[in-house]
């Protein structure tokens, strides 16, 4: 398709390229630049309503729509899966209002929008990962009021967060936080990495890729720029640990170094495992690198 054709096609739908009006995009873009300049800081933005419901990825979607261009190739995943209903829905919508190429191949995508996972494949500096965020405030667990959490961030007063972790250890003998594990960015801001599993946290640290986080309902954008330190909160004697799958392997590709979904077989009731990143698993299966 030529540029003119793409333009005509999207404009004929009655909507602007990438759906959002230019004013909205400019505002979101300005806020993205600020978010990148202040790693881990939650930048407020005038979140727009979209034809997709609040809480269903509208923050991530507004970032994607504001940065995407005709030269991009888009991938959208939910729970690591390209075929998940919500991912398909979002991808279809972006495709319709931009005409961009879409893919399921992590390596071929220039923009990946995701919910709850970071792809297994190590991403490059030519790619951007956009994470959908339900709760942008990592401190919300210990303080419900925004005015107060803002003060805590302003003064880097994180004592209550540390106390929370300490009490958790006293009660459970381990830090019991599963997903949404709080991290410190660049030694300054405590940040909610979105509900990704702990497995994905190390991938944020000093990566080649730019990570952008969008919370549509809570109207916040934040970022982890490339080569920026991201450290999970931990104590010397109680270290952060990723999920432990024991000696489980993916039933399809045989992988034992990926995040696995635990599945209960309908008929036998037996438990088995499968890669959560379906694209990674598919390619390993086709390559024959699986067992």
């Amino acid at each position: 398709m030529t540029l003119k054709e793409i333009l005509r096609k999207t404009f004929d739908n009655g909507y602007n390229f990438a759906f959002l009006d230019e004013g909205a995009k400019r505002e979101i873009r300005r806020k993205i630049l600020k978010a990148v300049a202040i790693p881990g800081y939650q930048t407020p933005f005038g979140s727009r309503e979209l034809p997709i419901a609040r809480g269903w990825g509208t923050g991530g979607l507004q970032i994607t729509l504001s940065i995407i261009g005709t030269g991009d190739t888009l991938k959208v995943i939910d729970q690591g899966c390209d075929g998940s209903v919500n991912a398909v829905n979002i991808k279809k919508f972006i495709g319709r209002v931009t005409g961009v190429k879409t893919t399921t191949d992590t390596n071929k995508a220039s923009i990946i929008q995701t919910r709850h996972r970071v792809p297994e494949e190590i991403m490059t500096e030519d790619q951007i990962l956009i994470l959908q965020v339900p709760y942008p405030e990592a401190l919300r667990t210990v303080e419900p009021e925004e005015t107060e959490t803002r003060r805590m961030h302003a003064e880097a007063d994180y004592s209550r967060m540390w106390l929370y972790l300490y009490e958790d250890i006293v009660r459970f003998g381990e830090i019991s936080i599963g997903a949404r594990y709080p991290v410190a960015v660049n030694g300054r801001y405590i940040m909610d990495p979105s509900p990704i599993p702990r497995w994905d946290i190390p991938k944020l640290d000093r990566a080649d890729t730019l990570y952008l986080f969008g919370a549509g309902r809570e109207k916040r954008i934040y970022a982890v720029p490339p080569h920026t330190e991201v450290k999970p909160l931990e104590f010397e004697d109680y270290l952060f640990r990723v999920e432990d799958f024991g000696d489980a392997r993916c039933r399809r590709c045989g992988s034992c170094d990926t995040f696995l979904d635990e599945i209960i077989d309908d008929e036998t009731g037996k438990r088995f495992y499968q890669c959560s990143d379906t694209d990674y698993c598919d390619r390993r299966t086709v390559d024959g690198t699986g067992s």
């Binding site: 540029l3 602007n16 390229f17 990438a18 230019e22 995009k25 261009g69 720029p225 490339p226």
Partner: peptide
């Protein structure tokens, strides 16, 4: 016209991505 408007839309997108790259690195 609509088409001009859309062209401007794509050009500013292009420039923005460059600014985003620049501030990220």
């Amino acid at each position: 016209s609509g088409e001009d408007h859309q062209t401007v839309s794509l050009l500013t997108q292009n420039i923005f991505r460059l600014l985003l790259d620049a501030i990220s690195r």
